[in-house]
C-alpha cells in the first residue's frame, strides 16, 4: 500500500503567524516528491481531535488575543486527546505560541494564567510588559547538526527536571535566555520557538518528523533523499548571518 501522511493542522486560522504556512507546504512537498500521499485536516475552535485518524499534529504561533481563545479550546475540547496522542508516541510539532500552550500553563505579561494542555513537562511565564522580548535569528545544535530559525517571544519557558530540550542554543535566546536550552521533546512530540518558517530551511528535521510519523503505520520505512541544494544554501546563509552578527550586539 502506498503510504500517505495524514496531518492535523490545529487552528490554522487563528495560529498562523510568522509564516507557519511554510511548514505545511514543506511537509506536503517532501511527501509528494517521494510519492507519499498527503492529507491535511484543519481543526478549528470547537472541533474534536481524534488522534487515531492522524499521523502528525501541527500547531503554530499566534498573537495574544488569539492565543487566549485557543488556550480555552485546547483545555475544553482537544486537551485530553492531545495528551493521549503524545503519551502513546504520536508525532507532534508545536511552534512558538502553540509550544507554550503544550506546557502546564502560560502566565501572560499581565499576570493572567492560561492553563495549558500539559503534554510537555514545562511552564512559561512572561515577566511583564517592561521585560525584553527575545527577538532574533537563532542557531541551535540538534543531533549533531544545526537548526536555523527566528524567534520572537516574551514568555520564558522552563523545563521540568528530566525533560530534554530539542537542542542547545549556539546563537540566540532559546527557552529562557539562561539555561542554553531551546524547545522541548516529549517522546515523539517536539516543541520549539523557531519559525522562519522552520521546516523548509531545516529539511533533515522535516524528514525526521515525516519518518517518525509514518513509521507507526509503516514499520521500517526509509525516506529517499531529495535534491536539497537550495535548502542547503538557505540554511548555510542563515548560520553565517546569525553567527557573524552574534559577534556584534544589535
Amino acid at each position: 500500500m502506498e503510504p500517505n501522511l495524514r496531518l492535523a493542522h490545529l487552528y490554522p486560522k487563528l495560529m498562523n503567524i510568522y509564516g507557519d504556512r511554510g511548514n505545511i507546504l514543506c511537509l506536503e512537498r517532501r511527501c509528494r516528491e517521494r510519492g507519499i500521499g498527503f492529507e491535511v485536516t484543519e481543526l478549528g475552535l470547537g472541533e474534536k481531535l481524534k488522534p487515531k485518524e492522524y499521523d502528525l499534529i501541527f500547531i503554530g504561533g499566534a498573537q495574544d488575543r488569539e492565543q487566549r481563545r485557543v488556550a480555552e479550546d485546547l483545555v475544553k475540547v482537544k486537551g485530553k486527546a492531545l495528551r493521549e496522542a503524545v503519551d502513546k508516541g504520536g508525532t507532534l510539532l508545536a511552534v512558538c505560541g502553540g509550544y507554550q500552550l503544550m506546557g502546564r500553563y502560560y502566565r501572560t505579561a499581565e499576570g493572567e494564567e492560561l492553563p495549558g494542555v500539559g503534554a510537555f513537562g514545562l511552564w512559561t511565564e512572561h515577566p511583564g510588559p517592561a521585560a525584553k522580548r527575545f527577538i532574533g535569528n537563532v542557531v541551535v545544535e540538534w543531533c549533531g547538526q544545526t537548526l536555523v530559525g527566528f524567534e520572537n517571544h516574551g514568555g520564558r519557558t522552563h523545563l521540568d527536571e528530566g525533560v530534554e530540550p530539542l537542542g542547545r542554543v549556539v546563537s540566540g535566546f532559546g527557552n529562557n535566555g539562561e539555561d542554553g536550552g531551546e524547545g522541548a521533546v516529549s517522546r515523539n512530540a517536539y516543541g520549539t520557538y523557531l519559525h522562519g518558517a522552520l521546516l523548509p530551511k531545516n529539511p533533515r528535521f522535516a524528514d525526521h518528523l515525516i519518518e517518525t510519523a509514518l513509521r507507526r503505520r509503516h514499520k521500517g520505512l526509509e525516506l529517499t533523499p531529495l535534491d536539497d541544494r537550495v535548502e542547503g544554501m538557505a540554511h548555510a546563509a542563515a548560520v553565517r548571518l546569525t553567527t557573524r552578527r552574534g559577534m556584534i550586539s544589535r
Binding site: Y18, D20, G22, L25, I135, N137, F150, A197
Partner: peptide, 9 residues
C-alpha cells in the same frame, strides 16, 4: 524587518 518569515505568507 529582521524576520523574513513573512515571505511564506
Amino acid at each position: 524587518g529582521r524576520d523574513v518569515s513573512w515571505i511564506w505568507d
